[in-house]
C-alpha cells in the first residue's frame, strides 16, 4: 500500500449555474497516511461532502489533483473505485431489496463469484449484527440498521480506503456508539478511514488527525491534541480547550452563530 492513502493538492470544485459560478471547494490540500482515521470537519456547506465526492470519483475535479490509494482519481477512476469503500451521507440503499441481496449484489459488482458473494454477505452481516434481519426488506430497517448495512456494503471488497460521510448523522446515541465501534474495528484491520462529521466529540473519539474546512478552504489541520494545545497557547488559556472551541475559533463562529450549524453531542 502507498504510504499516503489520500493526497490532494489545490483541489477546486466550481459549479456553474444560472446565477454565476459557485466555488464549493477553493484549493484543498490533504495528506492522509495509510492506516489512519482522518477526520474532516466543517459546518454545513463548508465543502466537506463536495471534497469527499471528488475523492470518490463521484464529482469531476475543476482543478487540482487527487490521488487515492496511490492512483490518480481523474486519470483512472475505475482503479480508484476498486480500492475504496464509500458510505455517503444518505445511506445509499435500495429499500426493495433485502439486506442480504444488497450485500451480495454489491460483492458481485466488485467481481466476486456468487458463492464468494454469499459467504462475504454472511461475514459482513454478522460483523454489523444484522444476520437476523438479513432476509428482511431494507425499507423495514431502522435508521441505525440502515447505517450499519451501508457500512457493510462499503466493505464487500475489503477496501484500502473507506470514506464515511457523516455516518452517524440522525442516529440515536446507542446506534452512534455502535458505528464508532465498527469504525475502530475496520481501522484495526488496516483500512484507512476518511471520516467527515459535524459531531466534534466523534472526531475527538475516533480520529488520529483531522482537518477543519470552512468556506471551501482548510483552516486548521493536525492531531486533536495539537490543535487544542495551539489554541491554548495562542489564547493563553489555563487549561486545554475542547475541540468545540477549536472548531469555533477556526471557523470564526461564535457559539450563538454556530448553534444551528454544528451539533455538539455526547454519545
Amino acid at each position: 500500500m502507498n504510504a499516503l492513502a489520500i493526497e490532494a493538492e489545490g483541489l477546486v470544485k466550481q459549479y456553474r449555474g444560472r446565477t454565476g459560478t459557485v466555488d464549493a471547494v477553493r484549493g484543498v490540500d490533504l495528506s492522509v497516511a495509510a492506516g489512519e482515521v482522518f477526520g474532516f470537519l466543517g459546518p454545513n456547506g463548508a465543502g466537506k461532502s463536495t471534497t469527499v465526492r471528488m475523492l470518490t470519483t463521484l464529482l469531476t475535479i475543476t482543478s487540482g489533483t487527487a490521488r487515492v490509494a496511490g492512483i490518480d482519481v481523474t486519470a483512472d477512476p475505475d482503479a480508484v473505485r476498486r480500492r475504496i469503500g464509500v458510505a455517503l451521507q444518505e445511506a445509499g440503499l435500495d429499500p426493495r431489496q433485502t439486506g442480504r441481496e444488497l450485500i451480495e449484489l454489491q460483492a458481485r459488482l466488485f467481481g466476486s463469484s456468487a458463492a464468494e458473494a454469499a459467504q462475504r454477505a454472511d461475514e459482513l452481516l454478522d460483523l454489523v449484527e444484522l444476520s437476523e434481519a438479513a432476509d428482511r426488506r431494507i425499507k423495514g430497517y431502522s435508521g441505525g440498521m440502515k447505517r450499519r448495512l451501508d457500512l457493510a456494503s462499503a466493505l464487500v471488497h475489503r477496501p484500502e480506503v473507506l470514506f464515511l460521510d457523516e455516518p452517524t448523522t440522525g442516529l440515536d446515541p446507542a446506534s452512534r456508539l455502535g458505528v464508532w465501534d465498527e469504525v475502530r474495528r475496520i481501522n484495526q484491520r488496516g483500512t484507512t478511514v476518511f471520516l467527515t462529521t459535524q459531531y466534534l466529540e466523534e472526531a475527538d473519539a475516533l480520529c488520529e488527525r483531522l482537518a477543519i474546512i470552512d468556506g471551501g478552504r482548510i483552516v486548521r489541520a493536525g492531531t486533536p491534541a495539537s490543535l487544542k494545545a495551539e489554541l491554548r497557547t495562542r489564547l493563553g488559556l489555563a487549561s486545554d480547550p475542547t475541540l468545540d472551541e477549536v472548531f469555533l475559533d477556526a471557523t470564526g463562529r461564535t457559539r450563538e452563530r454556530a448553534a444551528g450549524e454544528v451539533q455538539e453531542v455526547g454519545a
Binding site: 476498486r82 445509499g92 459488482l109
Partner: peptide, 16 residues
C-alpha cells in the same frame, strides 16, 4: 428513486 435515495451514487462509486 435510486438517485434521490443515494443508491445510484453507491453504484457509481463502484467499478461498474
Amino acid at each position: 428513486e435510486d438517485i434521490e435515495g443515494g443508491y445510484f451514487d453507491k453504484l457509481r462509486a463502484a467499478p461498474v
